[in-house]
């Protein structure tokens, strides 16, 4: 049987519709993929979305040069290969790359410090788009500036392509620690907080009232093991992005599955112990004193 469909008013691309997709991705793992084969592996493993990009951050770091938006053909191939949401990255401030990704029908845009910035002063005015945006942040002020520009999701930046969780932990602790302090502040102190954070006062007042950001906050940058994912979740992240950590490891399929399970069962050490077994070697990773370019410093 089929239904007799009529057509009435419907509003697309509104803020609640954009923020709604961010809400749906909570508790999940968003995996970086560079081709449709990897996208299928990610979907098979239980990823809640994939991030389509030309090179994973570890390779961008190794190769150097200018990192840009991906080829539309590659994005189309990944969209065709999987039925879960497909995200893609644009350079900070590069609103034309964002216009192109919107025209391609990607489900979410990441205005990302992992790509080479296109504008050294301005981020994209994300309210102009009907597709939702996620942006990175290292601290609460940065997070609130991105939200004031229309970001529907914040991810802690971490240090992409290192396989080292230390920076993500620093950023999560900074953001969540300041949120906790703001909930203890009195109304007069909130003005000082807004000045200190260089963030709009109404957003600071909203945090004081609700005890949380007005949008979901995920963790990215340096997750390489199931334990790393569970650490981010226990610290207060609401979902995780895994970039190089899966496809730069020895055996991506079991690692991807294990990270998905660890993100769901993040507070159950027995399940974490079980899923951490027999995964092969994780990506080697690099220490913060071994890198010469910190991506997290990009963005303003």
């Amino acid at each position: 049987m089929s239904f007799d469909e009529s057509s009435t008013t419907r509003a697309t691309g509104t803020y609640p519709v954009k923020r709604g997709l961010a809400e749906m991705l909570k508790g999940g793992v968003i995996m970086d993929v560079v081709n449709s084969e990897q996208a299928k592996i990610a979907e098979d493993a239980g990823a809640c979305a994939v991030m389509a990009l030309e090179r994973v951050p570890a390779d961008i770091r190794r190769d150097g040069g200018v990192a840009r938006m991906s080829d539309p053909d590659m994005i189309d191939a990944i969209k065709a290969a999987v039925s879960i949401p497909v995200m893609a990255k644009v350079r900070i401030g590069h609103f034309v790359e964002a216009q192109i990704l919107e025209a391609l029908g990607v489900d979410f845009i990441d205005e990302s410090e992992v790509l080479t910035p296109a504008d050294e002063a301005h981020h994209i005015d994300k309210y102009k788009f009907s597709v939702p945006f996620v942006c990175g942040a290292t601290n609460l002020g940065e997070a609130l500036r991105r939200i004031s520009e229309g970001a529907c999701m914040i991810r802690s930046k971490g240090e992409a392509g290192t396989g080292n969780i230390v920076e993500a932990v620093r950023h999560l602790r900074s953001i969540i620690g300041d949120i906790r302090k703001i909930t203890q502040a009195d109304s007069a102190e909130l003005f000082e907080w807004a000045k200190h954070l260089q963030a709009p006062l109404p957003l600071v007042q909203e945090i004081a009232e609700t005890g949380w950001l007005p949008v979901p906050m995920f963790c990215a940058g340096g997750i390489a093991t199931p334990a790393d994912a569970a650490l981010a979740m226990q610290l207060g992240a609401e979902a995780v992005f895994v970039g190089s950590g899966i496809f730069k490891s020895d055996d991506p399929t079991p690692r991807a599955k294990a990270i998905v399970e660890a993100t769901t069962h993040f507070s159950d050490p027995h399940i974490l112990a079980k899923v951490s077994r027999s995964l092969g070697a994780p990506m080697t990773g690099i220490g913060m004193d071994e890198i010469n370019q910190r991506y997290a410093e990009r963005g303003w």
């Binding site: 008013t9 519709v17 489900d107 597709v131």
Partner: peptide
């Protein structure tokens, strides 16, 4: 459809006395 087709709309729920504002995501 995909996220670009996600939408919000008022729907009539006869057991409620006024429309319900519904958000549809993919």
């Amino acid at each position: 459809g995909r996220q670009v087709d996600s939408f919000e709309a008022d729907i009539d729920v006869p057991s409620l006395n006024s429309p319900f504002h519904a958000v549809f995501i993919r």
